[in-house]
Design a protein around this nucleic acid. Structure first.
Lengths: 167, 167
DNA sequence: ATTATATTTCATTTTATTTTGAAACTTTCA
DNA sequence: TGAAAGTTTCAAAATAAAATGAAATATAAT
């Protein structure tokens, strides 16, 4: 059963990658499993394969749906729900990038703008603070715009960006 | 003391952003504090300001040095060490991007390549697996290359990239 | 309407991560 | 060399995050 081993290795790796890129481990593992499954899977299938509890499976499946990277499917004659990953990897990465911008960068930006614009006493400390936070605001804002520009292109955005950068 | 409040708000925000971008919270807070400090700070200063223990401060300072985003400074006549953040934000972001590529993406890539190239039985499952992991390898590899291209430019890489994308 | 099947919720438990603090270690000065 | 000042280490404690599992809820079939 070499295949089972490789499958597992992949699921673990994707889980680790996920948890360092903002998606929790189990979530990323479920996602990995769904990606490599030819057909959609039931919650039971997922629980069995990953050895996780029903509650855990339920919550993380919902999480994945919130991220917009998996969806439910209904099979004729079947009562329970099945789950499948979006098949397009470009789309997957786009969704993650945009979601993270919304959840993490935008709120931080708003704080940065706020604190950098406030008026304080005219001390060296306060001035260094204003200058630095303003600079950070500027930078993060630009980086976020860049991300937006890169991901607004629908398909093959990575390749297209790469091309633009090389020429 | 409006200023103290703003300072704190910034430190908290930067900590939260850090912990969602691969740098732990305290580390990011120390970094935040050093960034907005006009002068370099001693470990004692940092402990006091952030209300953390000596051990915690020591470990996280070392962590920050490992990331290459702060450095020690010695003051004439002073026995203890002082710490300061690299002042250039572009450089900071470059270092983080490259370090994360090295620590997280590269190892995942090597697993992806490995499992996608292995030979399995000729079943639907195994074939779906090979196809998907190969596709993922391709994608992640390109994304990593893109990151490399973007960050290999020394200064103002975000701005420069943005410009290239707009034209 | 009742039963059977499937899913969600959430208080509790488990596991993982951070933090502490005191001892060990290092360096500097007298 | 020895004491003082500073830093690091790491086992234990505290905290935070994730997972369990059983009860509650929802949905479908008879």
């Amino acid at each position: 059963m070499e295949f089972e081993k490789a499958k597992n290795r992949f699921i673990q790796t994707w889980g680790a990658l996920g948890s360092s890129w903002g998606i929790n481990k189990t979530m990323a593992q479920i996602h990995a499993l769904l990606m490599i499954s030819d057909d959609s899977l039931s919650m039971e299938d997922i629980m069995d394969e990953l050895h996780i509890s029903r509650g855990n499976a339920s919550m993380n499946l919902r999480g994945l749906i919130d991220w917009g990277i998996i969806h439910k499917e209904y099979k004729p004659g079947e009562r329970r729900e099945f789950f499948a990953a979006e098949k397009d990897i470009n789309e997957l990465a786009r969704k993650i990038a945009r979601e993270r911008s919304k959840r993490e960068i935008k709120p931080a930006l708003s704080v940065l703008r706020e604190v950098s614009q406030q008026d304080f006493e005219d001390t060296a400390d306060a001035n260094a603070f204003k200058a630095k936070t303003a600079e950070l605001y500027e930078f993060v804002s630009r980086a976020d715009n860049m991300l937006e520009k890169i991901t607004e292109q629908k398909d093959n955005w990575v390749t297209k960006t790469l091309l633009k950068l090389v020429t």
